[in-house]
């Protein structure tokens, strides 16, 4: 195995696209090193992207943010602008693992690991985030929901890597939130996760909403029916119940050691409803 720490994106792409056999990007390493240790992956080349200028920075851009792919959860959590604009995204990122994991784990890594239970992904999808993908053929910008395609699988092509995550400008009277269910209070993989972002008009009527669920399908899913249940309402109890029911209906989970199908379906609705209530509060400026 070879370890490389290029200092430019170009250098990284060249390494990843080379004939090195199996290549893996190392950002926070909190998934990759575990997979290597447990023999689930044996890369021939590891490309550490943390020495690339720009990959470790959060930049305010056109009212939104550009988050370098190697920015850790802890760094994100300490960024006042992000905390104010997209608290749901920050909270989701900061739920991943422990303080120790937070010091390393990145949004891009969480996304590219392509776990259906990834905590930050429902929040990113709800926030309408996109990623900058760079590869041998240049750059492209892709909505977050198009990156994971199944457990452990992404739409990235050979030689491509995520360079940054783009958060849009937060519209006025908007709020986002992410909640998950875990058996303990920390350190677990989400049994169900729900991210909600919504925008109110001046009358307090919901004009836009995005709802995404984690750990209820082969990848994180967006739930248009749940969004529709909120839009045009004052996000009252009845709307929330309809949204919760839509969420439960959209689930196609499996039974596994972390939870049953039945439980996931039920709790997906509960969490989405609670997350929406928090997002609503935030949209109302409370």
């Amino acid at each position: 195995m070879r370890y490389e720490a290029p200092t430019t994106v170009k250098g990284a792409v060249k390494l990843l696209a080379g004939k090195a056999g199996l290549a893996r990007v190392l950002a926070g390493g909190t998934d990759l090193l575990v997979q290597m240790r447990t023999d689930r992956v044996a890369p021939d080349l590891i490309v550490d992207v943390k020495r690339i200028a720009g990959m470790r920075r959060i930049e305010a851009k056109a009212g939104g943010f550009r988050i370098g792919a190697a920015v850790s959860g802890a760094e994100l959590g300490e960024h006042k602008g992000m905390r104010k604009a997209w608290p749901g995204v920050v909270e989701a990122a900061c739920l991943i693992g422990s303080t120790q994991v937070q010091g390393r784990a990145t949004l891009a890594g969480n996304l590219c690991n392509a776990s259906p239970a990834a905590d930050s992904v429902p929040a990113l999808i709800a926030a309408g985030a996109a990623v900058v993908v760079v590869g041998p053929r240049g750059r492209r910008t892709v909505p977050v929901e198009q990156i994971p395609v199944g457990p452990g699988r992404t739409s990235l092509k050979r030689g491509e890597l995520v360079e940054a995550i783009l958060l849009p400008k937060r519209p006025p009277r908007s709020g986002d939130a992410y909640l998950r269910f875990i058996p303990r209070s920390e350190m677990d993989i989400a049994v169900v996760g729900a991210g909600v972002s919504l925008t109110l008009d001046r009358q307090g009527v919901c004009s836009a909403a995005r709802v995404a669920l984690g750990a209820v399908a082969e990848r994180v899913i967006r739930v248009p029916e749940a969004e529709a249940a909120l839009i045009g309402t004052k996000v009252d109890g009845e709307a929330l119940e309809r949204m919760a029911a839509s969420c439960s209906a959209a689930c196609r989970p499996i039974d596994d050691k972390r939870g049953t199908r039945e439980f996931r379906i039920k709790v997906a609705g509960v969490l989405a409803r609670r997350a929406a209530a928090i997002a609503l509060k935030r949209a109302r400026g409370k």
Partner: peptide
């Protein structure tokens, strides 16, 4: 199925 501290969940301080 759960031979690790991730899924064999012993109490953490915040529990």
């Amino acid at each position: 199925q759960n031979p690790g501290f991730l899924d064999y969940r012993i109490p953490v301080a915040s529990d």
